[in-house]
Design a binder for these strands. Structure first.
Lengths: 341, 341
DNA sequence: AAGAGACCATGAAACGTTTCGAAAAGTCCA
DNA sequence: TGGACTTTTCGAAACGTTTCATGGTCTCTT
């Protein structure tokens, strides 16, 4: 089998057949003015007959743009199983369709010295979604490089640097408020809190919101009621007993992630306590599993899909409008009432 | 802010600095022979200092290859929430890293006349993973086009056409065998079966396996015991009552997907029956939710990640070895014993 | 009927690579 | 020392587009 025997139809083939210059065909294909309607018609017809399909790569080379949205996430072989990310990606995928762009994925290995800018240059990515950041490294140089080279981007996480950049994240304060209000409205006074990963952007923010709000809600203020998890199921299983074993145990547990909440639930059930009878549980995230555990978990839904879509929208707006100020969007979450409280 | 002020380092910049022809630099960058070690060293050093990064787009244009794996799936806005696909994609992502390729995603809208080959041409994709096929259309011309143009591909689903192609799917027969054997070993004689979507590749295959096997396993043969679902949670909820309402109801239900099994479980529990005490339930797929329902679902794990990786491996082998015969891999699944039976 | 505009179409250059035939530079041996 | 190799380096062409200055062809006005 010979390869590339049948080479594909180019703009020149069409030009030859139509008896015009290939630059004219280019104008037609890009829907630009200054081509007579008659000629345009003719060229389009021929292109259609011949089954022309533009070569995006050649187009990218000259325009220095790739018609692509590049999603960059940190090196982590298990990235894709984390449902949290997946739903965001669905949103990005939708946006790509809307803007007629292809979607590319890159994992960034910062330990090998790879930078966001290098990736953009290597693949001529002109629109980048940055999904998560290792804040232990200085990222501001990268940001500057992207900016200097006309690459538009959004962060899909809280951006902790000083620069003003497009970013989309959930409104953690509002989410925590909803949780505590809901619990308070059901008469809970003592609410145990399992905090999330302190090295993330969301973990500390939720904890801060919790501390800022519980007095306002009239809940018990007691440092004992706060334990430190890291968003994982295991940390929920590990930390929940500390709350249950208190002299004065809480009547409700709020975990900063669903996975931790589910871990806590397992422990509670193993001890023969009933949920929500003996103790209520609330999570945060509305991951897929939350609906399937028993009892189904009451939690806060982050509109992840919407967030993914918004992130692309912001970057596109920056691209189309030079005067558009980078925005930091905090998306309002939603309370999902189920059976766990 | 001016754009592209700082244009990036090219092979020519390096050539100028090193005082050589840019073609020589190209040879060095591609690790080709016929360059003296001394010069090679010097060029590499300069390239490194200047922070050279190859322009993959220019490279693609000339080589007609994109160093990319293109994953193509059918137009379906909710593609990405289906965990089944996601785990496969994780495998593909791993393989991409292994072969140092970027990952691109495309949704194919066959109603608009888009073909697999067109996508490959448009983006110079030379390695394609085809995730699912609309078998109501004739795909053999597409296959031929891909072949004729040296584009290597694997199907990540059972391929139903006549051609010999690379394909990776789960061994459904073996999976069903494991289920029935497990149920039989626990003394079940009457096993209800909720069939999957009849228009898919997997649905009929599992049903066929069920029918071929239940006599061998000494189970009751009774057409009443087979009901028709479509893989969704809702169809499980809808069909399970038909089995429970039989004059002689089954002692176990086997659903051809976890989602249907979970739907069935909900109905069973609503009727106040205990699982597995009154009735055992088994699923198929080992989706994420299976571990979290109560009781946790005994099911068949498809090694999805492995399948994704294998699909890329096969395509790469075809690419590297012209004489490699396309293979059709049926991956052995695994029984995951949990509490539902 | 000629000059001024407006509109169309063209051809060449460019994008950053790879490839390949040919030139240049080494090496070896007689 | 010169011819015959071999190895190294070079230069030009090519990949399929877009862009843009230039020139040609209309149509209108005076």
């Amino acid at each position: 089998m010979k390869r590339f025997e049948k080479s594909s139809i180019t703009i020149k083939d069409i030009a030859k057949k139509a008896g015009v210059a290939h630059s004219t065909v280019s104008l037609v294909m890009n829907d630009r003015e200054h081509v007579s309607p008659k000629l345009r018609e003719k060229i389009l017809k021929i292109a259609n007959e011949m089954g022309y399909m533009p070569n995006m790569v050649a187009r990218s080379l000259i325009s220095k743009k790739s018609s692509t949205v590049g999603v960059v996430f940190p090196e982590n072989p298990h990235f894709f199983t984390i449902t949290y990310f997946l739903m965001i990606i669905e949103g990005i995928q939708n946006a790509c369709k809307k803007y007629n762009r292809a979607l590319m994925f890159f994992s960034l290995d910062q330990t090998k010295g790879e930078s966001y800018y290098q990736i953009s240059r290597k693949w001529l990515i002109d629109l980048m979604i940055i999904m998560n950041v290792d804040y232990t490294r200085d990222i501001s140089k990268d940001i500057q490089d992207l900016r200097d080279n006309g690459i538009y981007f959004s962060f899909l996480t809280k951006y902790l640097g000083k620069e003003k950049v497009n970013s989309v994240c959930v409104d953690n304060y509002e989410g925590v408020r909803m949780v505590l209000e809901h619990l308070a409205s059901q008469g809970h006074k003592r609410v145990g809190y399992i905090a999330g990963n302190p090295n993330s952007a969301d973990g500390p923010e939720r904890t801060q919101a919790y501390k800022a709000l519980y007095k306002k809600m009239g809940l018990d203020q007691d440092e004992e009621l706060i334990v430190q998890g890291d968003f994982t199921f295991e940390s929920g299983e590990r930390e929940a007993p500390k709350l249950l074993d208190l002299k004065k145990p809480p009547t409700a547990i709020f975990a900063a992630s669903d996975y931790m909440a589910i871990g806590a639930m397992r422990v509670i059930k193993e001890r023969g306590l009933s949920i929500p009878g003996d103790i209520a549980v609330m999570g945060f995230d509305n991951t897929l599993e939350a609906a399937y555990v028993e009892p189904a978990l009451t939690t806060i839904r982050q509109p992840l899909q919407e967030m993914g879509e918004k992130a692309v929208d912001l970057a596109i707006r920056s691209m189309n409008d030079e005067s558009f100020e980078p925005q930091s969007l905090a998306i309002k979450p939603e309370l999902i009432k189920r059976q766990s409280c």
